[in-house]
C-alpha cells in the first residue's frame, strides 16, 4: 500500500486541504474507487476505509493480480466533512458538479481538475455517492445513459439492482458522467445510508466491489456471487408523492414487498395529530427508496417503487 497526496491546497488558517489516495498493486491503471465528494457522505468514507483495509490484506497475501494498479480515494472533500457542511465551505459549490474541472478556475474547479487528472485514465471507476433528497436506498449500481454505459459489466457487481439514469443537463458535470466520456467504465454505487453508518449495506457494497474485481481478474477473492441484478430505467420507477406536508410516519422500509393499496406512510397534522394523508402503493412493487426524515414537504417523492413482474 502506498499512501500519497493526490491534490493539495494551502489554506490561510486551516490545515492544508488534502486529497489522499491509497495505491495497491503495480501496472496499468485498472481500478479507481472514490468516496465522498460532499461533507455529509460519511457512509461513503466508511465504505472506502473498509475497502482500503481489505486491499491492504489482499496485497499482503499476494492476492492482487500482477499488472493492475488500484487507487482508492476515501474523500475528495475532507474540509466539508470536518465542518459538517454538505458543500464547499466558502462558496457552497458542489465538487461533484465541477468535473472535469479547470486548473485555472475557481477553487472547487481546481480540486475537480486536480483529482480528475489523476483518475481519468483508469479502466474502471467506482464512486460511492448520495442522492440529494434525504432517504434510504436499496443498495444498487447506478449508471448514466451516455451511450458508453455497459450494463453487462455492471451485473458483475451482483448488486440487487442496476439503475439506468437518463442524463439531465446538470448531470454533465458529475464525476460519473465525465469518467464515461473519458472512456472509463464508471459506476455510482449507492448503499442504504449517507450521514449515518449502515454496516449491512456497507458490507454488501464492499463484497460487490471485490466480487466485480475477482470476475475481472484483478483480485483473487472468493465469496458468493451476490444477486442476479435487475436492470431498471429510472423513468420506469414509480414515485409516490405526498399531497400534504406534515409529520412523516413511514410504515414500510426499503426492500419491503408491498401490494397494491397497501399503506406506505401517514402524514400527520403537526399540531392536531390526526392523519391528513395516507400514502398507498399504486401497484404490487418493491420499496426501492424511502424518505427517512421526520417531516415532509408537499409534492415530495417519499417513496420510489419498482413494480414487480406480473
Amino acid at each position: 500500500m502506498r499512501k500519497k497526496v493526490i491534490y493539495e491546497i494551502k489554506s490561510l488558517y486551516r490545515d492544508n486541504f488534502r486529497v489522499t489516495g491509497y495505491e495497491f498493486g503495480e501496472g496499468e491503471e485498472s481500478v479507481c474507487i472514490v468516496g465522498n465528494t460532499r461533507g455529509n457522505e460519511i457512509q461513503q468514507i466508511y465504505v472506502c476505509s473498509q475497502i482500503v483495509n481489505r486491499f491492504k490484506r489482499l496485497e499482503e497475501e499476494g492476492k492482487i493480480r500482477e499488472g493492475h494498479k488500484i487507487l482508492v480515494i476515501p474523500s475528495i472533500n475532507p474540509y466539508s466533512v470536518n465542518i459538517q457542511k454538505r458543500f464547499w465551505p466558502t462558496d457552497n459549490t458542489d465538487i461533484n458538479r465541477m468535473f472535469p474541472g479547470y486548473h485555472l478556475g475557481e477553487t472547487t474547479q481546481r480540486i475537480a481538475a486536480g483529482v480528475f487528472e489523476n483518475i481519468k485514465n483508469y479502466k474502471y471507476g467506482m464512486q460511492f455517492t448520495s442522492f440529494y433528497m434525504p432517504g434510504k436506498f436499496t443498495p444498487h449500481v447506478r449508471m448514466m445513459k451516455t451511450g458508453f454505459e455497459d450494463v453487462e459489466l455492471a451485473k458483475k457487481f451482483g448488486m440487487p439492482y442496476i439503475i439506468l439514469r437518463n442524463t439531465r443537463p446538470y448531470d454533465t458535470t458529475t464525476l460519473n458522467y465525465n469518467w464515461q466520456i473519458w472512456e472509463t467504465n464508471a459506476f455510482s454505487i449507492y448503499t442504504t445510508a449517507t450521514n449515518v453508518i449502515d454496516k449491512a449495506s456497507a458490507n454488501m457494497a464492499i463484497r460487490s466491489v471485490l466480487t466485480f474485481l475477482n470476475k475481472e481478474d484483478i483480485v483473487d477473492y472468493h465469496s458468493h456471487d451476490g444477486y442476479i441484478s435487475e436492470v431498471v430505467d429510472d423513468r420506469d420507477m414509480i414515485s409516490v408523492r405526498t399531497k400534504k406536508a406534515g409529520i412523516f410516519e413511514g410504515i414500510v422500509n426499503v426492500g419491503d414487498e408491498v401490494i397494491k393499496g397497501q399503506p406506505l406512510a401517514n402524514i400527520i397534522a403537526p399540531y392536531e395529530g390526526h392523519i391528513v394523508e395516507t400514502l398507498e402503493a399504486p401497484e404490487d412493487s418493491i420499496v426501492f427508496f424511502a424518505h427517512d426524515e421526520p417531516i415532509t414537504y408537499a409534492n415530495t417523492a417519499v417513496y420510489k417503487l419498482i413494480q414487480r413482474e406480473k
Partner: peptide
C-alpha cells in the same frame, strides 16, 4: 476579502 487558492 477571504480568498482560497483559485478564488476569483
Amino acid at each position: 476579502p477571504i480568498v482560497s487558492e483559485g478564488s476569483l
